[in-house]
Amino acid sequence: MGDNKTLASAHKPIKVLDGIPMLIICIIIIAALYILGITGVFSSNLMRYLMNIFLYITMGEMWNLLSGFTGMTSLGNQTFIGLAGFSVAVMTSTYSMSIWVGILVALVIAVVVALLLSFVLFRMRGMYFAIATWVVAEAICTWFLSWKYVNQGGGMSVRAKPYPRIPEIYLMALTLCVIAMVVVYVLLRTKTGLGLTAMRDDADASSSVGVNIFKSKLLVYVIAAAFTALAGAVFFVNKQTIYPSSGFDISWTVSMVFIVIIGGIGTVSGPVVGAIIYVLLSEILAKLPGWSNIILGAIAILVIIFLPDGIMGTLQKKLHFELFSQKRFSEPKKNLRAKAQMQA
């Protein structure tokens, strides 16, 4: 009985919500967010929340790109957040450069470090990869704690005259978030993206149809590093001070995992929902000092057990729709498999 039901539902046509109408809705929402920010309709408090949501969406999308779409579960994305925060702080306070130079340096360092790390990290898979990324973050944190150049563990400040005001940082975060989502969406629809999803599902099949795994993984890893770093840079521009223990904190990964798991791993829209819930929940939990990670952790575990597809994943399955679908390559994917099997 149960089986028949799922079979029947699987054959129900899936409504794909993208194309022109969806694009227009998205543009309207984004335009509204820009206009309301610029015209000062939003209060600074609201803008602070929204800014955090945008930054967490960016980080969540990147973690999702790595883990949900490519199968590279990382526990060390805080490496790029910490490096970015310190880049901005060092450039602005030690060398008195502008914040923009700081952000540019953060981007370059993240890309270079990601390229260097890839040689080591890409030799590993699964949990080895996951733990190795964490070890890298901890190693850099330990190093920074005793490196005079970054004031050891004493922390550094981001300096600028005039210091960017909240609406400006809000616009930075919003722009970053929009670009990040467009990049993820476009990337997943390209041939590379198709290869990556195939790789997550079946590494052998994708390699036998000539998807260059190393190149594709490298591209995704560098993109994730770059955007995570940019989000970290903007975050610390807003925060103004950074310590090794805050920049390289494993709790960054906790947030990203939470956001993606709650929203729905492997969906483009999931991290958006997850980030909104995360920021609201953190606000509520701030009133219960000490309990926030306990409650976040418990929610994440319950979701993994009872709602393994997350909110968006479950909604899409139940209501038969796909938001920003990867539909365009879900068909060729089957052909890929068939081809691979024929070759084997």
Binding site: S67, T73, L75, G126, M127, A130, S251, V254, V257, I261, G290, W291, S292, N293, I294, L296, G297, A298, A300, I301, I304, I305, P308
Partner: peptide, 30 residues
């Protein structure tokens, strides 16, 4: 807990132990 989650695959199980670790850490802090 873990026997249940392991039915869903190794990645969910890994993330559940990650969740446990942050819960335990803050519980001990409290």
């Amino acid at each position: 807990l873990i026997n249940r989650v392991m039915l869903k695959g190794s990645e969910p199980a890994l993330l559940v132990t990650f969740g446990l670790s942050i819960i335990l850490q803050d519980a001990m802090l409290l």
